[in-house]
Amino acid sequence: MQSFKEKVVVVTGGASGIGRALANAFLEEGAKVVISDVEKTALDKTATELAAKGGVVRAVVTDVSKPESVDALADAVFSEFGACHVLCNNAGVSVPNNNVWDTTPNDWQWVLGVNLRGIAHGVQAFVPRMLESGEEGIIMNTSSGDGGISPLADQSVYASSKAGVSIMTECLNAQLVGQESKLRACIFYPSGGILPTGIWTTRRNRPAELAREKPAPEGAEMTFDEFMEGMKQIGVDLPVQDLDELARFALDGLHQGDFVIMIGRESMEDTLVERARKLARGECPIEHGLHA
């Protein structure tokens, strides 16, 4: 898509982190932006701050894990603007690192409900209307290298959800191209360094009915600052990726029509080739996750 000026853009998980940065980047290019999030207070604050910079911003409280909530978001967008040109399915959550056998049913119910089914709900609510409009459009789904490219053993729940996102997006784009529509789908892999986003503390939004059935392992949950301090104490200096820079990179990828949007994506070739070789040899491609 060559220009986002006057285009209608929807960003889920838009109250903070990557979602907020994406919304800001689209606004800077003249788009009309609708941000959604499950956190009303944070959502309203972000919408006010973004609108103060100029441009059209709307906020719609949405729980992407509930199809009726995403349908209501689509109703609001098409009722006011009559179109959606870019859908950023970005909302995501995570749970503490754990052995698969120590995860709980509610861990899977919550994470898959938001990260995977939430994107399916977005596609189901928006894509039929986008197709009907006959206009050019993009569906950008936020995945993760942890799952889509090189899953980490200790992050089984999160990695599984993100692997699903990547495969779903491949299928979606193949269908859109095969049916000669004007829509395209792409995968956004946030990258470039450690990301200072709300994913570190998503437990704040975990529904009471989906609470863990047993306590999380000691030290399994930490904030971004706590993680970085822990790394510093053991002499590890990790790069931190600026989110606004990341968002601008994502928009550049959309302008170029990239299917995979990822900083340093050329490096994934060696990773995926080695993964394929191990699988072809009948080996597990993931390094053993060792607990202290």
Rank of each mutant, 00 (worst) to 15 (best):
K7R: 12
V11C: 12
S16V: 12
G19S: 04
A23H: 11
F26A: 06
L27S: 10
V34L: 02
I35M: 11
S36R: 03
K40V: 13
L43M: 09
D44N: 14
A47F: 03
E49P: 13
K53R: 15
D63T: 02
S65N: 11
K66T: 04
D71C: 02
C84T: 13
L87C: 10
N89S: 13
V100Q: 00
T104K: 09
D107C: 09
G113W: 04
A125I: 02
A125W: 03
F126R: 05
M130S: 01
M140V: 07
S143N: 05
S143V: 09
G148W: 04
S156M: 00
Y158I: 01
A163I: 06
T169M: 03
E170K: 00
C171N: 14
L172R: 08
N173S: 11
V177K: 14
A185P: 12
C186S: 13
I187V: 12
F188P: 06
F188L: 15
Y189W: 14
L195Y: 12
W200G: 10
R206N: 09
E209M: 05
A211T: 09
K214T: 10
P215T: 08
A216S: 08
E218C: 04
T223G: 13
T223P: 11
F227C: 04
M231C: 15
I234R: 02
G235I: 01
P239A: 03
Q241I: 10
L246R: 13
L251G: 07
D252E: 05
D258W: 04
M262H: 15
R265V: 09
E274Q: 08
K278E: 07
L279E: 05
E283M: 01
E283V: 03
